[in-house]
Simulated scan of single mutants.
Amino acid sequence: MSKKMSYGSDYKYIPATTIRSGKITQVLPDLYCYANKVVNVVFIGDARKKSFVLVDAGMPKSAKKIVKAVEKTYGKGARPKAILLTHGHFDHVGSIIELINYWKVPVYSHAFELPFLTGEFDYPSPDPFVRGGLIAKISYKFPKRAVNLADHIERLPADGSVPYLEDFRWIHTPGHTPGHVSFFREKDRTLIAGDAFITVKQDSLIKTITQKLELNGPPKYFTTNWRAACESVRKLKELHPAVAITGHGRPVSGENLTINLRNLADNFEQKAIPPKGKYV
């Protein structure tokens, strides 16, 4: 018998959104980015074949909207083969329990992220004192307690393969969280980066709402290991991605991605790491 799943005691609806919320963007023939309020949920799979996986599980209280976006893309009654998690922060697993119960599909994460997804450890508190903007200042209100998916979650295969996606491999990109992963497809250099880097200044309320495209490091208020975060961005730069979907912000491709990712990686200390903060 499956064990009971639960969210952390501080789980709650977060009234934050952007001008892109609700939009489904087809990035490639088999790659879609669904903007769920301030975070992206990714669908990987050709809509004509109706076989796909979901990457991340959106904001709290968003399950019905995610299901609606999936069915709009893949047809009535569509469900993913699996849900892959880049990491377990509240805005990436906010609707995970409802989606598991509705679709009855397996969920995968990195082994180092499992303690935060099985109720063993809470994430460190957000740092509202990093220099950024209003979202950084109110980050202390965000949920940080662990979700407990019990026996509904599995670790990603140790060989780097990705279940149900034979052309993709997962890459350990820690820093934002200990078990953060990104997903990469070599044949067309497609990158699902999670929050290893993002394409909006997530600390700023105005830039988050307007979704002004600019490459940034991971959200400052929730990143606890800046040395590892720097190495992760440099690792992703070396993949020379042609297109990327990040956890926050617009999809990016071509020279805009190449030039700005190189600039971010080469100047990470100046561009991404806050000048002060409890995790700096």
Results as ranks from 00 to 15, higher is better:
Ser161Leu: 05
His87Pro: 02
Val162Cys: 06
Ile24Val: 15
Lys50Arg: 15
Phe184Ser: 01
Ser109Asn: 05
Thr199Gln: 11
Tyr108Asn: 01
Phe168Tyr: 15
Leu54His: 00
Ala272Tyr: 02
Ala242Leu: 14
Lys65Gly: 05
Asn263Trp: 10
Arg227Lys: 15
Leu257Thr: 07
Thr246Tyr: 07
Tyr102His: 15
Arg185Cys: 04
Lys68Ser: 14
Arg79Gln: 13
Arg145Cys: 07
Tyr11Asp: 03
Gly179Phe: 08
Ala228Thr: 01
Phe268Lys: 00
His172Ser: 15
Val280Ser: 01
Ala146Ser: 15
Lys212Met: 05
Lys235Arg: 15
Tyr123Glu: 01
Gln26Ile: 03
Lys49Gly: 02
Ile192Ser: 01
Ile192Leu: 15
Tyr108Ser: 04
Thr177Asn: 08
Lys50Val: 09
Gly277Asn: 01
Lys61Trp: 13
Gly58Trp: 10
Pro174Trp: 11
Asp46Gly: 06
Arg262Cys: 12
Lys4His: 12
Ile14Gly: 03
Leu134Gln: 06
Thr18Met: 00
His240Pro: 03
Phe90Lys: 04
Phe52Trp: 09
Leu236Asn: 07
Ile83Cys: 04
Leu117Glu: 05
Leu191Cys: 06
Arg169Pro: 04
Phe90Val: 12
Ala63Trp: 11
Tyr11Glu: 09
Lys235Ala: 12
Phe43Leu: 13
Thr173Met: 01
Arg48Asn: 13
Ala196His: 08
His180Glu: 13
Tyr32Asp: 03
Leu84Cys: 01
Val41Ala: 06
His248Asn: 13
Ile198Gln: 10
Ile83Thr: 13
Pro126Thr: 13
Val280Gly: 01
Phe121Cys: 09
Gly247Phe: 09
Asp195Tyr: 10
Ala16Ile: 14
Pro115Val: 09
Leu205Arg: 00
Ala193Trp: 07
Asn267Lys: 04
Cys230His: 08
Ser204Pro: 02
Ile206Asp: 06
Tyr74Gly: 03
Glu71Cys: 06
Ser253Lys: 14
Arg227Asp: 14
Lys4Gly: 02
Lys141Met: 15
Asp30Ile: 05
Trp170Lys: 04
Lys144His: 15
Gly45Pro: 00
Val67Ala: 13
Ser6Asp: 07
Trp170Ser: 05
Tyr108Arg: 06
Lys23Pro: 01
Arg20Trp: 05
Ala69Leu: 10
Glu186Leu: 10
Lys187Cys: 09
Glu166Thr: 11
